[in-house]
């Protein structure tokens, strides 16, 4: 392209805007971002830098003066630490199970609620309640009133059909915790999938019907592909929250029996706040973060795709 003469401010240009003013305006619009950015950097990034520094030290809080550099020692311990590996597997198992099951149930409930029926609003209201319940309470509630071997409702129901009572929390700790998590997160999945179902254009569904597709074919060929980004988003966000599961474990099994339900957050908590081993816990934290970054960068790319498809203007 040819170059063009820059704007010539004539002699009678009261409104003429020198470039400095334009720059000022750009700053005026950019400035609002800075407090939030600085705050986040200050509260989340700086501590992490310290985590990295501590991870090269041996430092036990209960032994003052024990702080000294140990190089990669802590990391060597992390990778030879079978408890860490155990916690990692527990973490993966717990997250995958909770996300997958709550997603399947959530899709089912969303399909149920996508149709008009008497009291739909009430059912929806009832269904989202578990998600709003404080996780601490959820753990408590399930451990006691629901799953207690003697007085729990579930065992009462089992007795009705002639099954001997089971101490779920100690015999099936993982299943118990996953049950609580699924109970809490199914409503979340349902809400997201339901939003997807309701964003479907009625005309497309009618077109499919005119083309001769039955309800099942329509669901498989039209609805499921349409829901895909919503399912991905729900699964992704659910996973982001669920990898940090701590409250429910703390309230029900305390990571046990043994280490059966010790996930990474809980393991780290044990090392740092029960063992006061700052160096070791920091190294664990750093390794966890590196692992998360690897997973999260894939997840983030997905997230951006979902956002750009649901966003009108960007």
């Amino acid at each position: 392209m040819a170059t063009f003469a820059p704007p010539r401010p004539g002699p009678m240009t009261p409104g003429a805007r020198p470039p400095a003013a334009a720059r000022r305006e750009a700053w005026q619009r950019r400035l609002p971002l800075t407090p939030a950015l600085l705050f986040m950097i200050f509260v989340t990034q700086i501590p992490f830098v310290f985590t990295v520094i501590f991870s090269f030290q041996s430092w036990n809080l209960v032994r003052p003066g024990s702080q000294h550099w140990v190089g990669l020692g802590n990391y060597a311990n992390v990778f030879t630490d079978s408890a860490f590996r155990g916690a990692l597997f527990t973490e993966i198992e717990m997250t995958v199970l909770a996300v997958a099951i709550s997603m399947v149930l959530g899709i089912g409930l969303a399909v149920l609620l996508d149709r008009k029926f008497p009291g739909r609003g009430i059912v929806r209201t009832l269904l989202i309640a578990p998600f709003l319940v404080m996780p601490t309470v959820a753990g408590l509630l399930w451990k006691t009133t629901m799953l207690d071997p003697v007085y729990g409702i579930v065992n009462y129901l089992l007795r009705l059909v002639g099954v001997a009572p089971v101490d779920f929390v100690s015999r099936f700790p993982m299943a118990s915790i996953v049950t609580v998590l699924v109970w809490q997160w199914t409503p979340f999945m349902m809400l997201i999938v339901l939003a997807g179902l309701q964003s479907q254009s009625g005309e497309v569904l009618e077109a499919a019907r005119v083309d001769g597709a039955g309800p099942w074919t329509t669901f498989r060929a039209i609805t499921v592909p349409h829901l895909r980004p919503y399912i991905e988003l729900g699964g992704l966000l659910g996973a982001i929250y669920l990898v940090n599961t701590f409250d429910v474990i703390f309230m029900t099994t305390q990571g046990g029996p043994g280490t059966a339900t010790t996930n990474l957050p809980y393991y780290l908590y044990q090392r740092a706040f029960l063992g006061f081993d700052v160096g070791q816990a920091s190294a664990l934290g750093v390794v966890t973060v590196i692992g998360t970054i690897a997973v999260a960068s894939v997840a983030l790319r997905m997230l951006f795709t979902v956002f750009s498809t649901t966003e009108g203007r960007a």
Binding site: P7, P9, M12, T13
Partner: peptide, 15 residues
Amino acid sequence: DSGRISIGDRDVTHA
């Protein structure tokens, strides 16, 4: 980007 626009006798190019 170049040239000018006026309304009445006022140059409003950058107003």
